[in-house]
Nucleic acid binder design. Structure first.
Length: 579
RNA sequence: CGGGGUGUAGCUCAGUUUGGCUAGAGCGCCUGGUUUGGGACCAGGAGGCCGUAGGUUCGAAUCCUAUCACCCCGACCA
């Protein structure tokens, strides 16, 4: 492609609404432009990159035995009502009423549609297993789109769904997808961490996330020191801190006036207490059930863990519910005396490190001190559960190993779904033994745009992007530097040779000074640069430079083509893991 | 959804506090010339309903009201 004819509008200035490097660089390098919050138009160079990524994904998926299909991005609401996921997704799911009054949703994902397809087409175990995938636009009306393409409303996702006759078959495909994902991300030049994402519910290794560690990531990855175990902070289990069971000769509970002190910080400051002595009490609702959750003051409840322990979905209680339960304003709840009024008391291990603590008095503007767990509120009993329900923090251990924390971008997830969708949507088949069974399912997603953004996050410098060749918009950029017909002709010649040999080449034939071309070449991040200038041309040489290295090699003009083709092969080989 | 902020040239932003504007700068764009290896220089030029709609005023980018868009923070409060 000739630069003079291409729409690659690079800009010098950092756009004011771009916060993280990948977002800034994608705008600056002319890869995309924003249309509205969370939606972007991909310009030629940006679209080339996306296509490269999609082709790698497609290639590996096809090799794995999956079959590509394409499902509609407008789906009937009825399907979602059948699985109840219209409620789960809530306002994140965009929907509209068509002219006939039918409700439609803009696909945020496609489990319903694909399961509906399977329900109609799969009748026999002989058709199983099967793995269907698509690469398509998804829409999620995020409550807060941000970070450019990392959390956008419209994005491209590869989503695959597998159907099986038995668990063993699902396990097999799951493993195949797991390996396929490793190859996909490696080929995209990404260093990933595989994170355990689903700890209990479905048993064992139900789900893994593929995460790219980098500063701008929205997820927090927790790893054991030896790297053998990695998990998302939302699930990260921690060892229980040693419980204290000192002598029981504590003073009786005593009320203290704490006017208008509601938060942990306020109470600590007011009573000159350490947050480690406080028992934080939170009221949750689960349908009509009330759940009281306790955690030590310096920790935070982890809603995901709490949900697992509670065994069902939960939400924080509203003000009215709390007032009705505690008889006090919000901010003064405590476990003493109200346990008969709740359905479940869930206590984090950390509370048991408190011998005599401070907590809310269930009376506006009052707290109580000398609160002894087990004496003043139950720590055993039918509706009392002691569990790990708090967020892991620096200093925690798991199985005796110190936990480390880093941020990451989630680029892919593999998931064992079981029969959740097949039962609700009637995806049944007749098994060998002539009994009717529900398909066991798995699903496997990859965020195409996120691959692009994370590649930039982890591979860039002050001048711009440094693409791995597998997903670069072009393999080579030719920058004639200086004017003169000989230079232009030599550049043109190399361009024609390389293009004919199948390389993807951008010829910077613009009427611009060398400096401008070099800056743009670096910003765009094309892996190989060929420069032809007056000096080297006089010696019948061209200069070859890799974007990721500073070294410049002079190569005789007649050898440039071969040399470049070799370089392309070499760079590609570095990324072709086992392919 | 709650809190905060910003809307002025294609982009980045001054100007708004204290109304007087016939609205500015840098970058980008167009013309001509000189240049030409790391975002050149000179000269000339195009480009704005100051987000939108009302209002106050002799007079509004500036003050008031409403509204829309975009951005940031938060949605863990006990």
């Amino acid at each position: 492609m000739r630069y003079s004819e291409a729409l690659i509008p690079t800009v010098k200035e950092v756009p004011s609404d771009a916060e993280i490097p990948s977002h800034q660089l994608m705008i600056r390098a002319g890869l995309m432009r924003k249309l509205a919050s969370g939606t972007y138009t991909y310009l030629p160079a940006g679209w080339r990159i996306l296509k490269k990524v999609m082709n790698i994904v497609r290639n590996e998926m096809d090799k794995s035995g999956a079959q590509e299909i394409l499902m509609p991005s407008v789906q009937p609401m009825e399907l979602w009502q059948q699985t109840g996921r219209n409620v789960d997704y809530g306002p994140t799911m965009a929907h509209f009423t068509d002219r006939h009054g039918r409700e439609n949703v803009l696909a945020p994902t496609a489990e319903e549609v694909v399961t509906n397809l399977a329900a109609g087409e799969i009748n026999s175990y002989k058709q199983l297993p099967i793995n269907l995938y698509q690469i398509s636009f998804k829409f999620r009306d995020e409550f807060r789109p941000r970070f450019g393409v990392l959390r956008s409303r419209e994005f491209i996702m590869k989503d695959a769904y597998s159907f099986h006759a038995d668990e063993k078959s699902l396990d097999d495909t799951y493993k195949v997808m797991y390996e396929t994902y490793k190859r996909i991300f490696s080929r995209c030049g990404l260093k990933y961490v595989i994170v355990e994402a689903e700890s209990g519910e479905m048993g064992g290794s139900g789900s893994h996330q593929f995460t790219i560690p980098c500063e701008s990531g929205e997820d927090v990855i927790v790893q054991t020191e030896d790297g053998s175990y990695a998990t998302n902070i939302e699930k990260a289990p921690v060892d229980a801190l040693p419980a204290k069971t000192g002598n029981k000769n504590y003073k009786p509970v005593e009320e203290i006036n704490t006017p208008n002190r509601k938060t942990i910080e306020e109470i600590c400051a007011f009573l000159k207490a350490n947050a480690k002595e406080l028992i934080k009490t939170l009221v949750y609702k689960s349908g009509t059930d009330l759940i009281l959750a306790l955690v030590r003051g310096d920790f935070e409840i982890n809603p995901e863990k709490l949900r697992c322990v509670a065994g069902k979905s939960i939400e924080l209680a509203d003000e009215q519910t709390i007032k009705a339960l505690t008889g006090a304003e919000v901010g003064f709840a405590g476990p003493i005396g109200i346990t008969p009024k709740i359905n479940k008391l869930i206590i984090d291990h950390s509370v048991l490190t408190i011998e005599a603590g401070i907590t809310g008095a269930n009376k506006t503007d009052y707290h109580v001190k000398n609160v002894v767990p087990g004496r003043d509120f139950p720590i055993t009993g039918k509706n009392v559960i002691i569990a790990d329900i708090r967020n892991a923090v620096q200093g925690d251990t798991y199985k005796g190993q110190k936990l480390t924390f880093k941020r990451g971008i989630e680029v892919g997830q593999v998931f064992k779904l079981g029969t959740k969708y097949s039962t609700k949507l009637g995806a049944k088949f007749l098994d060998k033994d002539s009994t009717e069974k529900f398909c066991i399912m798995g699903c496997y997603g990859i965020g195409i745009n996120r691959i692009v953004a994370s590649a930039i996050e982890i591979s860039r410098d002050n001048d711009g992007i440094i693409w791995p060749i597998s997903i670069a918009p072009f393999d080579v950029i030719i920058t004639p530097a200086g004017n003169g017909e000989e230079i232009a002709a030599a550049a043109e010649n190399i361009y024609n040779e390389l293009t004919a040999a199948g390389a993807e080449v951008l010829l910077d034939d613009r009427d611009a000074r060398g400096g401008v071309k070099f800056k743009d070449a670096d910003l765009l991040g094309i892996p190989i640069r060929v420069t032809i200038g007056a000096k080297s041309l006089a010696e019948n040489n061209a200069e070859i430079k890799l974007r990721r290295e500073s070294e410049i090699t002079k190569v005789p003009l007649v050898q440039v083509k071969e040399k470049i083709l070799q370089l392309i092969e070499k760079l590609k080989a570095e990324l072709n893991v086992g392919a």
